[in-house]
Write a protein that binds this DNA or RNA. Structure first.
Ligand code: FES
Ligand code: FES
Lengths: 132, 132
DNA sequence: TTATACCCGACACTTAAAGTCGTATTTATG
DNA sequence: CATAAATACGACTTTAAGTGTCGGGTATAA
């Protein structure tokens, strides 16, 4: 449990990098890939998925790249993580409500309480708490 | 990120089950395995590892099994999770201090703050918050 | 027209978790 | 003392998820 995926780390690094630039400055995938030693192809896809959810905006053609678009303090860290990694939860029953086999599970309630505590923390924080 | 491993879930279920019995009652692996539909061999190993760290006490021979031993409110949830799943942390650098490649990582400090918040929650809680 | 950048699906590789198997050890009991 | 019932444990296979690669496609400035 617990570790960010590389995708998520790459995304946060890139977003912080983009955030540090002025709104009009365009940054290429290659620039970020080089500076932080992130495999180019992987970072490409990460940035593409960020573009897909409108967090960054692509600029096509020569001298193109990305610019950061949305005010990142709008997005909670929880939501961002779910964008990057899919639905989150300490156990299956908090994700797809299908904790296989464990028909009469005896720990569901206490686990749910822990789950809620973690969720609260991450919901109160925003992406810009990381990127700013 | 975020989901307990099955091992951890199995352990918590078993510990709660054991906790619900009186101190002198012995419970077999098979009883728990049957009641919660956990693969016997897997549960065996989980209980063995719990026995190894003295959380439960094995009783050999016929009519043997396990009894719960230690006061579980002594063990923080964080420590317990590290027993079950190894060192925890949001990124490698908080585990083995070797975030590969990312020489000039720009998000280490903010990530560390989140890491600490999560760790605080789990350190303040004890295993008996789940098993009791 | 061309070069440069983003876009994207399909595939291969790697790793960790999950589960299986065979065998050894301990001990209560007849 | 033989047996059966329980834990102990290393070696192995299978599965699933994450990570990374490849080849081609689209948009656009110059
Ligand atoms: S049923 Fe989901 S944790 Fe047990
Ligand atoms: S160096 Fe560990 S998160 Fe970047």
């Amino acid at each position: 449990m617990f570790k960010f995926t590389r995708r998520t780390e790459y995304a946060l690094i890139a977003m912080r990098h983009l955030q540090s630039k002025s709104m009009s400055e365009i940054t290429t995938t290659k620039e970020i890939s080089d500076q932080y030693a992130i495999p180019f192809e992987i970072l490409s896809k990460v940035l593409q998925s960020l573009a897909k959810v409108k967090i960054i905006k692509p600029v096509y053609g020569p001298n193109g790249g990305y610019i950061i678009k949305q005010n990142l303090s709008n997005i909670s860290l929880w939501d961002f993580l779910e964008i990057m990694e899919g639905p989150l939860g300490l156990a299956d029953c908090f994700i797809d409500s299908d904790c296989t086999q464990l028909d009469n599970c005896n720990i569901r309630t206490p686990i749910q309480q822990i789950n809620n505590k973690m969720k609260t923390i991450l919901t109160k924080m925003t992406v810009s708490d990381v990127t700013l």
